Simulated scan of single mutants.
Amino acid sequence: MDTSLANTSPETFDEIRPYRDEEVRDVVDRLTKDAELSHSILRFKFPRLAKTGLAKPLSWLVQRTLNQRLAKINSVHDLQVYVESYMAQMIANTTQGFTVEGLEQLFKNESYLFISNHRDIAMDPAFVNYALHVNGRDTVRIAIGDNLLKKNYVSDLMRLNKSFIVQRSAKGVRQMMAAFNLLSRYIHHSIKEEKQSIWIAQKEGRAKDGIDRTDPAIIKMFYMAEKKLGKPFCESIADLKIVPVALSYEYDPLDIDKSRELVQKQQEGHYAKGEFEDIYSIAHGIAGFKGRVHVAFGTPLTGEFADADAVATAVDEQIRKLYKLYPSNYLALDALNEVGDFTLPTFDAKTKAAFNARLATCPEAYKQQWLSIYANPVKNFLGRL
Rank of each mutant, 00 (worst) to 15 (best):
2 D>W: 00
3 T>K: 14
9 S>K: 13
12 T>W: 02
14 D>T: 14
16 I>E: 11
18 P>H: 12
24 V>D: 06
25 R>P: 05
31 L>S: 06
34 D>A: 08
35 A>F: 11
36 E>A: 13
38 S>P: 07
40 S>Q: 12
47 P>W: 09
48 R>D: 10
61 L>W: 02
66 L>C: 07
68 Q>E: 08
69 R>P: 00
75 S>M: 06
84 E>F: 00
85 S>R: 14
86 Y>T: 12
86 Y>E: 14
88 A>I: 01
94 T>W: 01
100 V>R: 04
106 L>D: 07
116 S>Y: 02
117 N>Q: 02
120 D>Y: 07
120 D>F: 06
123 M>T: 06
124 D>P: 07
126 A>S: 15
135 N>G: 09
135 N>V: 08
140 V>S: 11
152 N>C: 00
152 N>E: 13
156 D>S: 08
160 L>W: 02
161 N>G: 05
162 K>R: 15
167 Q>R: 14
174 R>K: 15
175 Q>V: 05
176 M>S: 03
186 Y>I: 03
187 I>N: 05
191 I>N: 07
193 E>N: 13
194 E>R: 10
195 K>A: 06
196 Q>K: 14
204 E>S: 14
208 K>Q: 10
211 I>H: 07
216 P>I: 04
216 P>H: 05
218 I>K: 10
232 P>Q: 14
233 F>K: 13
236 S>A: 15
238 A>N: 08
241 K>C: 11
256 I>A: 04
265 K>E: 12
267 Q>F: 00
269 G>P: 09
270 H>G: 00
282 I>P: 03
289 F>Q: 13
291 G>T: 08
297 F>C: 04
299 T>G: 00
302 T>Q: 15
316 D>Q: 14
333 L>S: 10
338 E>R: 14
340 G>D: 14
346 T>E: 15
348 D>F: 03
351 T>Q: 11
355 F>Q: 12
359 L>A: 13
372 S>A: 08
372 S>R: 09
376 N>M: 03
377 P>W: 04
378 V>Y: 04
379 K>A: 04
